[in-house]
């Protein structure tokens, strides 16, 4: 695709015809819009983009785009995306999902994806609840939130994804709010352009199981600080803020992990590869 035709791409070109399964009023609709707006701004043709997810309401997002997609098993979006990006560095790879998928069942992969720093953009649509299974507490749910599965609340301190990401080595950390799709799209564009592993934690109200989250619209505010490349400073800020400031909170300069991979690309794989004379030699006595 030439640069001229690429410029004509709009958000609509990245949206599929499928109707989302989300509830009316779900924050994820706006995030889907933000993703397609960001894509149009980045202007990579849809076939060069892959959206990878696990399981949950927000993990349905790949099929709602017009890109290549993979809707895998619960919690494994990040290794799936990692394997794709390492073997196909030519692609733009985005991983997406929810707080349960990314921070609970996929928690170990979250740590190691931050640490490995492959050039991926990870979008977490955090609604602080398990929606698809009809309302159980997630790692980011407040301790007192009452539910059928955990009556009286978990009593547990919520997981703090941003500070964990900083500690584990993520190269770009931001917070956004689904109620502001254009602002979210702009952060996404920066995240995608930034080399290495980028985490965008997007507050996305669950109107069905956490209707009180509608109030988030009144609570969010832009971060009152400049973005920083100082990890300690960023960590201190995110640990002490009110959890509702949005913007780019950390922007590092670690080189992404991308070992050479020449055998990739469009070559159909499998079968027929001959022996290698050097390897044969190794086994001669």
């Amino acid at each position: 695709m030439t640069a001229e035709t690429a410029r004509r791409l709009t958000a609509r070109d990245y949206k599929s015809a499928l109707k989302p399964v989300w509830c009316p009023g779900c924050g994820d609709f706006s995030i889907l819009s933000a993703i397609t707006m960001a894509m149009a701004e980045i202007a990579r043709p849809p076939e060069e983009v892959a959206v990878i997810s696990g399981i949950g309401c927000s993990s349905r997002v790949p099929a709602y785009t017009n890109c290549y997609g993979f809707h895998g098993v619960h919690g494994r979006a990040l290794p799936l995306a990692t394997g794709l990006k390492l073997s196909r560095p030519d692609l733009l790879v985005i991983a997406a999902g929810g707080d349960g998928d990314g921070y609970s069942i996929g928690g170990n992969h979250f740590l190691h994806a931050c640490r490995r720093n492959v050039d991926l953009t990870y979008i977490v649509m955090d609604n602080q609840v398990y929606g698809m299974t009809k309302g159980q507490p997630s790692p980011t749910t407040p301790p007192e939130w009452d539910s059928a599965m955990v009556p009286g609340g978990t009593g547990l301190r919520p997981f703090h994804p941003l500070v964990i990401a900083l500690a584990a080595g993520a190269n770009f950390v931001a917070r956004a709010f689904s109620g502001d799709p254009s602002g979210t799209a702009q952060i996404l564009v920066d995240a995608i352009r930034h080399p290495g592993f980028s985490l965008i934690e997007i507050l996305s109200p669950c109107v069905t199981f956490r209707p009180e989250e509608r109030e988030w619209a009144k609570q969010v505010h832009p971060a009152a600080v400049e973005e920083t490349g100082d990890r300690a400073q960023a960590a201190r800020r995110v640990l002490t803020d009110d959890g509702f400031n949005t913007g780019i909170l950390y922007c590092g300069d670690r080189a992404p992990y991308q070992p050479a991979f020449a055998a990739s690309g469009m070559e159909p794989a499998g079968g027929g590869a001959a022996g290698n004379a050097d390897f044969d030699m190794e086994f001669r006595p």
């Binding site: 892959a50 895998g72 799936l80 394997g83 073997s87 196909r88």
Partner: peptide
């Protein structure tokens, strides 16, 4: 899952 991703991309 990494190899599933790699295979989805076309590698054996």
């Amino acid at each position: 899952n990494m190899i599933i991703g790699g295979s989805f991309g076309g590698a054996a």
